[in-house]
Simulated scan of single mutants.
Amino acid sequence: MTMQVQAAVCRTTGAPLSIESLQLGEPRDDEVLVRVVATGVCHTDIGMRESPTRVPKPIVLGHEGAGIVEKTGGSVRKLRPGDHVVMTFNTCGHCSSCYQGHTAYCSQLGRLNFAGQRDDGTTAFSGSDTGVHSHFFGQSSFATYAICSQRNAIPVRKDIPLEILGPLGCGIQTGAGAVLNSLNVRPGASLGVFGAGSVGLAAIMAARLAGASVIIAVDTQPSRLDIAIELGATHVINAAQEDTFSRIQAIAGHGLDFALDTTGNLHVIRQAVEHLGVRGVCGLINTAKGADASVNILNMVLGGKSVKGIHQGDSNPDTFIPQLIEHYAQGRFPFDRLIQFYALADINAAMADMESGQTIKPVIRMPAL
Protein backbone atom coordinates (compact mmCIF):
# COMPACT_ATOMS: atom_id res chain seq x y z
CA MET A 1 0.00 0.00 0.00
CA THR A 2 1.10 3.57 -0.62
CA MET A 3 -0.10 7.00 0.47
CA GLN A 4 0.11 10.37 -1.23
CA VAL A 5 2.33 13.00 0.39
CA GLN A 6 3.61 16.46 -0.43
CA ALA A 7 7.36 16.82 -0.50
CA ALA A 8 10.14 19.20 -1.52
CA VAL A 9 12.23 17.28 -4.06
CA CYS A 10 15.84 18.06 -4.92
CA ARG A 11 16.10 16.94 -8.55
CA THR A 12 19.03 18.94 -9.95
CA THR A 13 22.26 19.99 -8.28
CA GLY A 14 22.16 23.69 -7.42
CA ALA A 15 18.54 24.15 -8.52
CA PRO A 16 15.56 25.14 -6.35
CA LEU A 17 13.59 22.34 -4.74
CA SER A 18 10.27 21.48 -6.35
CA ILE A 19 7.06 20.85 -4.40
CA GLU A 20 5.59 17.59 -5.67
CA SER A 21 3.02 14.94 -4.87
CA LEU A 22 4.76 11.62 -4.22
CA GLN A 23 3.72 8.16 -3.19
CA LEU A 24 5.11 6.93 0.13
CA GLY A 25 5.25 3.22 0.88
CA GLU A 26 4.48 1.36 4.08
CA PRO A 27 6.99 1.24 6.95
CA ARG A 28 9.07 -1.93 7.07
CA ASP A 29 9.33 -4.20 10.12
CA ASP A 30 11.72 -1.92 12.04
CA GLU A 31 10.46 1.39 10.64
CA VAL A 32 8.04 4.07 11.78
CA LEU A 33 5.65 6.24 9.78
CA VAL A 34 5.61 9.81 11.12
CA ARG A 35 3.21 12.61 10.23
CA VAL A 36 5.61 15.50 10.03
CA VAL A 37 4.51 18.69 11.78
CA ALA A 38 7.59 20.82 11.06
CA THR A 39 11.18 20.41 9.92
CA GLY A 40 14.19 22.63 10.51
CA VAL A 41 16.43 23.70 7.64
CA CYS A 42 20.12 23.02 8.21
CA HIS A 43 23.18 24.12 6.23
CA THR A 44 23.74 20.42 5.50
CA ASP A 45 20.51 20.41 3.48
CA ILE A 46 21.85 23.30 1.42
CA GLY A 47 25.21 21.58 1.07
CA MET A 48 23.56 18.43 -0.28
CA ARG A 49 21.49 20.46 -2.73
CA GLU A 50 24.70 22.05 -4.04
CA SER A 51 26.82 18.88 -4.13
CA PRO A 52 26.83 16.76 -7.31
CA THR A 53 28.09 13.67 -5.50
CA ARG A 54 27.24 13.56 -1.78
CA VAL A 55 23.68 12.24 -2.21
CA PRO A 56 21.87 10.66 -5.16
CA LYS A 57 19.21 12.74 -6.88
CA PRO A 58 16.28 13.13 -7.12
CA ILE A 59 15.99 13.03 -3.33
CA VAL A 60 13.84 14.41 -0.53
CA LEU A 61 16.16 16.16 1.93
CA GLY A 62 15.30 17.33 5.46
CA HIS A 63 16.79 15.92 8.65
CA GLU A 64 15.40 17.97 11.55
CA GLY A 65 11.85 16.64 11.51
CA ALA A 66 9.34 16.51 14.34
CA GLY A 67 5.94 14.88 14.22
CA ILE A 68 3.51 12.26 15.43
CA VAL A 69 3.85 8.52 14.98
CA GLU A 70 1.09 7.20 12.72
CA LYS A 71 2.12 3.57 12.27
CA THR A 72 4.91 1.25 13.42
CA GLY A 73 6.46 -1.88 11.95
CA GLY A 74 5.97 -5.25 13.60
CA SER A 75 9.29 -5.32 15.50
CA VAL A 76 9.10 -1.76 16.82
CA ARG A 77 8.90 -1.67 20.61
CA LYS A 78 10.27 1.80 21.37
CA LEU A 79 7.28 3.73 19.95
CA ARG A 80 3.56 3.50 19.46
CA PRO A 81 1.02 5.44 17.35
CA GLY A 82 0.31 8.87 18.84
CA ASP A 83 3.79 9.37 20.27
CA HIS A 84 5.43 12.74 19.63
CA VAL A 85 8.92 12.32 18.19
CA VAL A 86 11.96 14.28 17.08
CA MET A 87 13.85 12.64 14.22
CA THR A 88 17.63 12.74 14.30
CA PHE A 89 20.60 11.05 12.56
CA ASN A 90 20.37 7.31 11.99
CA THR A 91 22.75 4.70 13.41
CA CYS A 92 23.27 0.97 13.08
CA GLY A 93 23.15 0.04 16.78
CA HIS A 94 25.65 -2.79 16.52
CA CYS A 95 29.09 -1.35 15.66
CA SER A 96 31.67 -0.76 18.41
CA SER A 97 30.83 2.95 18.66
CA CYS A 98 27.12 2.26 19.06
CA TYR A 99 27.78 -0.48 21.62
CA GLN A 100 29.86 1.97 23.66
CA GLY A 101 27.17 4.65 23.52
CA HIS A 102 29.07 6.88 21.07
CA THR A 103 26.32 6.82 18.46
CA ALA A 104 27.48 10.06 16.80
CA TYR A 105 30.48 8.07 15.55
CA CYS A 106 28.58 5.04 14.24
CA SER A 107 30.72 3.28 11.64
CA GLN A 108 27.73 3.16 9.28
CA LEU A 109 26.82 6.87 9.41
CA GLY A 110 27.62 7.47 5.75
CA ARG A 111 25.57 4.59 4.45
CA LEU A 112 22.60 5.14 6.76
CA ASN A 113 22.34 8.90 6.34
CA PHE A 114 23.54 9.75 2.83
CA ALA A 115 22.89 6.73 0.59
CA GLY A 116 19.31 7.82 -0.15
CA GLN A 117 17.92 4.31 0.18
CA ARG A 118 17.48 1.29 2.42
CA ASP A 119 20.14 -1.42 2.62
CA ASP A 120 18.29 -3.47 0.01
CA GLY A 121 18.38 -0.57 -2.46
CA THR A 122 14.71 0.37 -2.17
CA THR A 123 13.41 3.87 -1.52
CA ALA A 124 10.29 4.90 0.34
CA PHE A 125 9.15 7.44 -2.26
CA SER A 126 8.03 7.14 -5.85
CA GLY A 127 7.05 9.91 -8.25
CA SER A 128 4.84 9.99 -11.29
CA ASP A 129 7.68 9.12 -13.65
CA THR A 130 10.56 7.78 -11.56
CA GLY A 131 11.76 6.71 -8.15
CA VAL A 132 12.73 9.39 -5.65
CA HIS A 133 15.46 8.75 -3.10
CA SER A 134 14.51 8.72 0.58
CA HIS A 135 16.02 8.00 4.00
CA PHE A 136 18.22 11.11 4.03
CA PHE A 137 19.51 11.08 7.63
CA GLY A 138 17.14 8.15 7.98
CA GLN A 139 14.08 10.38 7.53
CA SER A 140 13.81 12.71 4.46
CA SER A 141 11.52 14.99 6.42
CA PHE A 142 10.92 17.82 3.92
CA ALA A 143 7.60 16.08 3.43
CA THR A 144 4.22 15.80 5.07
CA TYR A 145 5.02 12.22 6.10
CA ALA A 146 8.35 10.48 6.68
CA ILE A 147 9.53 6.94 7.27
CA CYS A 148 12.37 6.54 9.74
CA SER A 149 14.01 3.84 11.81
CA GLN A 150 12.90 3.28 15.37
CA ARG A 151 16.52 4.08 16.32
CA ASN A 152 16.42 7.68 15.08
CA ALA A 153 12.92 8.61 16.24
CA ILE A 154 13.19 10.07 19.74
CA PRO A 155 10.01 10.12 21.87
CA VAL A 156 9.43 13.48 23.55
CA ARG A 157 6.96 15.00 25.97
CA LYS A 158 3.64 16.10 24.48
CA ASP A 159 3.18 19.43 26.25
CA ILE A 160 5.80 21.29 24.17
CA PRO A 161 4.80 22.46 20.65
CA LEU A 162 6.15 20.01 18.09
CA GLU A 163 6.67 22.75 15.53
CA ILE A 164 9.70 24.09 17.44
CA LEU A 165 11.36 20.79 18.32
CA GLY A 166 12.77 19.61 14.98
CA PRO A 167 16.05 21.60 15.14
CA LEU A 168 16.98 19.65 18.27
CA GLY A 169 17.59 16.68 15.98
CA CYS A 170 20.75 18.16 14.47
CA GLY A 171 21.88 21.80 14.68
CA ILE A 172 20.79 22.65 18.20
CA GLN A 173 21.95 19.36 19.72
CA THR A 174 25.28 19.80 17.91
CA GLY A 175 25.99 23.23 19.39
CA ALA A 176 24.70 22.45 22.85
CA GLY A 177 26.31 19.02 22.91
CA ALA A 178 29.66 20.45 21.86
CA VAL A 179 29.71 22.48 25.07
CA LEU A 180 28.02 20.09 27.49
CA ASN A 181 29.27 16.73 26.17
CA SER A 182 32.33 17.16 23.95
CA LEU A 183 34.18 20.00 25.68
CA ASN A 184 32.56 19.49 29.08
CA VAL A 185 32.78 23.21 29.79
CA ARG A 186 33.05 23.70 33.54
CA PRO A 187 31.73 26.45 35.83
CA GLY A 188 33.93 29.54 35.76
CA ALA A 189 35.56 28.64 32.44
CA SER A 190 36.14 30.93 29.45
CA LEU A 191 34.79 30.02 26.02
CA GLY A 192 35.09 31.67 22.63
CA VAL A 193 32.44 30.76 20.04
CA PHE A 194 33.35 31.60 16.46
CA GLY A 195 30.20 31.99 14.38
CA ALA A 196 26.85 32.95 15.90
CA GLY A 197 24.49 30.98 13.71
CA SER A 198 22.09 28.46 15.16
CA VAL A 199 24.87 26.06 16.18
CA GLY A 200 27.00 28.79 17.75
CA LEU A 201 24.07 30.35 19.58
CA ALA A 202 23.03 26.94 20.91
CA ALA A 203 26.57 26.61 22.23
CA ILE A 204 26.30 30.00 23.92
CA MET A 205 23.05 29.02 25.64
CA ALA A 206 24.64 25.76 26.76
CA ALA A 207 27.70 27.59 28.08
CA ARG A 208 25.45 29.70 30.26
CA LEU A 209 23.78 26.50 31.48
CA ALA A 210 27.23 25.09 32.26
CA GLY A 211 28.17 28.13 34.34
CA ALA A 212 30.95 29.52 32.14
CA SER A 213 32.00 32.96 33.40
CA VAL A 214 33.38 34.33 30.11
CA ILE A 215 31.40 33.57 26.96
CA ILE A 216 32.66 35.39 23.86
CA ALA A 217 30.57 35.41 20.67
CA VAL A 218 32.35 36.28 17.41
CA ASP A 219 30.44 37.08 14.21
CA THR A 220 30.15 39.73 11.51
CA GLN A 221 26.41 40.42 11.79
CA PRO A 222 25.38 42.89 14.51
CA SER A 223 21.89 41.38 14.83
CA ARG A 224 23.37 38.00 15.71
CA LEU A 225 25.71 39.52 18.24
CA ASP A 226 22.74 41.30 19.82
CA ILE A 227 20.86 38.04 20.30
CA ALA A 228 24.06 36.38 21.54
CA ILE A 229 24.14 38.87 24.41
CA GLU A 230 20.50 38.15 25.19
CA LEU A 231 21.14 34.40 25.21
CA GLY A 232 24.15 34.45 27.51
CA ALA A 233 27.26 35.87 25.87
CA THR A 234 29.26 38.07 28.23
CA HIS A 235 31.24 39.68 25.38
CA VAL A 236 30.72 40.05 21.64
CA ILE A 237 33.21 40.80 18.89
CA ASN A 238 32.26 42.03 15.43
CA ALA A 239 35.01 40.48 13.32
CA ALA A 240 34.23 42.83 10.44
CA GLN A 241 34.97 45.91 12.55
CA GLU A 242 37.70 45.00 15.03
CA ASP A 243 40.70 42.73 15.47
CA THR A 244 39.14 39.59 16.89
CA PHE A 245 42.13 38.09 18.63
CA SER A 246 43.43 41.36 20.10
CA ARG A 247 40.04 41.68 21.78
CA ILE A 248 40.13 38.09 22.96
CA GLN A 249 43.56 38.63 24.46
CA ALA A 250 42.25 41.70 26.26
CA ILE A 251 39.26 39.78 27.61
CA ALA A 252 41.04 36.51 28.47
CA GLY A 253 44.62 37.50 29.11
CA HIS A 254 45.75 34.00 30.06
CA GLY A 255 44.05 32.47 27.01
CA LEU A 256 40.74 30.75 26.47
CA ASP A 257 39.91 27.56 28.33
CA PHE A 258 37.80 26.49 25.38
CA ALA A 259 37.23 27.60 21.80
CA LEU A 260 34.51 26.35 19.47
CA ASP A 261 34.68 26.96 15.73
CA THR A 262 31.52 26.75 13.63
CA THR A 263 32.92 28.70 10.64
CA GLY A 264 35.39 26.33 9.00
CA ASN A 265 37.67 29.31 8.39
CA LEU A 266 41.23 27.96 8.57
CA HIS A 267 42.75 31.28 9.68
CA VAL A 268 40.22 31.54 12.50
CA ILE A 269 40.88 27.96 13.59
CA ARG A 270 44.65 28.47 13.70
CA GLN A 271 44.34 31.71 15.66
CA ALA A 272 41.79 30.18 18.03
CA VAL A 273 44.23 27.38 18.87
CA GLU A 274 47.07 29.88 19.39
CA HIS A 275 44.91 31.86 21.83
CA LEU A 276 44.03 28.89 24.02
CA GLY A 277 45.30 28.96 27.57
CA VAL A 278 47.27 26.16 29.17
CA ARG A 279 45.53 22.82 28.55
CA GLY A 280 42.90 24.61 26.49
CA VAL A 281 40.75 22.75 23.98
CA CYS A 282 39.51 23.90 20.58
CA GLY A 283 36.46 22.08 19.25
CA LEU A 284 35.79 21.86 15.52
CA ILE A 285 32.24 21.47 14.24
CA ASN A 286 32.38 22.79 10.67
CA THR A 287 34.07 20.31 8.32
CA ALA A 288 35.72 23.12 6.28
CA LYS A 289 34.90 20.99 3.20
CA GLY A 290 37.64 18.56 4.14
CA ALA A 291 40.46 21.12 4.17
CA ASP A 292 43.69 20.62 6.12
CA ALA A 293 44.53 22.95 9.01
CA SER A 294 47.97 23.65 10.48
CA VAL A 295 48.89 24.41 14.08
CA ASN A 296 52.19 25.09 15.84
CA ILE A 297 53.28 21.83 17.44
CA LEU A 298 55.62 23.47 19.99
CA ASN A 299 52.79 25.70 21.16
CA MET A 300 50.50 22.67 21.44
CA VAL A 301 52.98 20.51 23.35
CA LEU A 302 54.26 23.09 25.82
CA GLY A 303 50.74 24.34 26.49
CA GLY A 304 49.14 20.92 26.70
CA LYS A 305 46.58 22.14 24.20
CA SER A 306 44.34 19.97 22.06
CA VAL A 307 42.06 20.17 19.05
CA LYS A 308 38.93 18.01 19.06
CA GLY A 309 36.68 17.10 16.20
CA ILE A 310 33.02 17.10 17.18
CA HIS A 311 30.15 15.38 15.41
CA GLN A 312 26.53 15.88 16.49
CA GLY A 313 27.76 17.22 19.83
CA ASP A 314 28.79 13.72 20.97
CA SER A 315 25.09 13.31 21.62
CA ASN A 316 23.17 10.21 22.56
CA PRO A 317 19.89 11.59 21.20
CA ASP A 318 17.63 9.27 23.20
CA THR A 319 18.71 11.00 26.39
CA PHE A 320 20.18 14.33 25.26
CA ILE A 321 17.22 15.64 23.24
CA PRO A 322 14.77 15.11 26.15
CA GLN A 323 17.30 16.84 28.44
CA LEU A 324 17.39 19.90 26.16
CA ILE A 325 13.59 19.97 26.08
CA GLU A 326 13.53 19.91 29.88
CA HIS A 327 15.95 22.85 29.99
CA TYR A 328 13.67 24.69 27.56
CA ALA A 329 10.58 23.94 29.67
CA GLN A 330 12.38 25.41 32.69
CA GLY A 331 13.16 28.60 30.75
CA ARG A 332 16.92 27.95 30.71
CA PHE A 333 17.44 27.06 27.06
CA PRO A 334 15.27 29.34 24.86
CA PHE A 335 16.29 27.92 21.50
CA ASP A 336 12.91 28.91 20.04
CA ARG A 337 14.27 32.48 19.90
CA LEU A 338 16.28 31.40 16.84
CA ILE A 339 13.34 30.10 14.83
CA GLN A 340 11.42 31.69 11.96
CA PHE A 341 8.60 29.71 10.34
CA TYR A 342 7.99 29.18 6.63
CA ALA A 343 5.39 27.22 4.67
CA LEU A 344 6.50 24.19 2.68
CA ALA A 345 5.72 26.13 -0.51
CA ASP A 346 8.30 28.74 0.59
CA ILE A 347 11.14 26.33 1.33
CA ASN A 348 13.45 27.86 -1.29
CA ALA A 349 12.97 31.30 0.27
CA ALA A 350 13.77 29.77 3.66
CA MET A 351 17.02 28.33 2.31
CA ALA A 352 17.94 31.64 0.67
CA ASP A 353 17.25 33.53 3.89
CA MET A 354 19.46 31.11 5.81
CA GLU A 355 22.28 31.44 3.28
CA SER A 356 22.13 35.24 3.43
CA GLY A 357 22.06 35.27 7.21
CA GLN A 358 18.67 36.94 7.34
CA THR A 359 17.19 33.99 9.24
CA ILE A 360 19.10 32.03 11.87
CA LYS A 361 17.01 28.85 11.91
CA PRO A 362 14.22 28.44 9.34
CA VAL A 363 11.59 25.86 10.23
CA ILE A 364 9.20 24.52 7.61
CA ARG A 365 5.62 24.00 8.77
CA MET A 366 3.93 21.19 6.86
CA PRO A 367 0.48 21.74 5.37
CA ALA A 368 -2.42 19.75 6.75
CA LEU A 369 -3.64 17.10 4.32
Results as ranks from 00 to 15, higher is better:
Ser294Ala: 12
Cys10Asn: 13
Pro317Gln: 05
Thr122Pro: 07
Leu231Arg: 04
Gln23Pro: 03
Ile68Phe: 07
Asp346Ile: 04
Gly101Ser: 10
Thr122Asn: 10
Ala196Arg: 02
Gln340Val: 14
Glu70Cys: 06
Gly192Asn: 00
Ala143Leu: 12
Val218Thr: 00
Ala352Gly: 10
Gly110His: 11
Thr244Gly: 00
Thr103Lys: 15
Lys57Asn: 11
Lys71His: 14
Gln330Ile: 01
Ile204Lys: 00
Gly188Lys: 05
Gly171Met: 06
Val363Leu: 10
Leu225Gln: 01
Thr44Lys: 04
Pro56Thr: 08
Arg208Gln: 12
Ala293Gly: 12
Gln323Lys: 13
Asn348Lys: 07
Pro362Met: 04
Lys305Gly: 01
Glu20Gln: 15
Asp119His: 12
Gln271Tyr: 02
Ala352Met: 11
Thr39Trp: 04
Pro362Ile: 04
His133Pro: 05
Glu355Ile: 11
Asn299Gln: 15
Ser51Asn: 11
Glu163Cys: 05
Met366Tyr: 09
Gly74Val: 14
Arg35His: 11
Val214Glu: 00
Ala8Tyr: 09
Asp129Ile: 07
Gly47Leu: 05
Leu22Gln: 03
Tyr145Arg: 15
Cys98Ser: 03
Gln6Trp: 10
Ile269Val: 14
Arg186Met: 09
Val76Glu: 09
Val295Arg: 02
Gly283Asn: 03
Ser198Trp: 02
Leu191Trp: 00
Gly73Gln: 05
Val85Phe: 09
Gly101Gln: 09
Ile285Trp: 04
Gly138Pro: 12
Phe89Ile: 06
Pro161Cys: 04
Ala368Leu: 15
Phe333Ala: 05
Gln100Trp: 01
Ile360Ala: 10
Arg270Asn: 15
Gly277Thr: 00
Asn152Lys: 09
Gln6Tyr: 08
Gly138Ala: 06
Ile297Trp: 13
Leu225Glu: 00
Ile216Thr: 00
Ala196His: 06
Gln340Ala: 13
Val301Cys: 03
Ala233Ser: 02
Ser149Tyr: 05
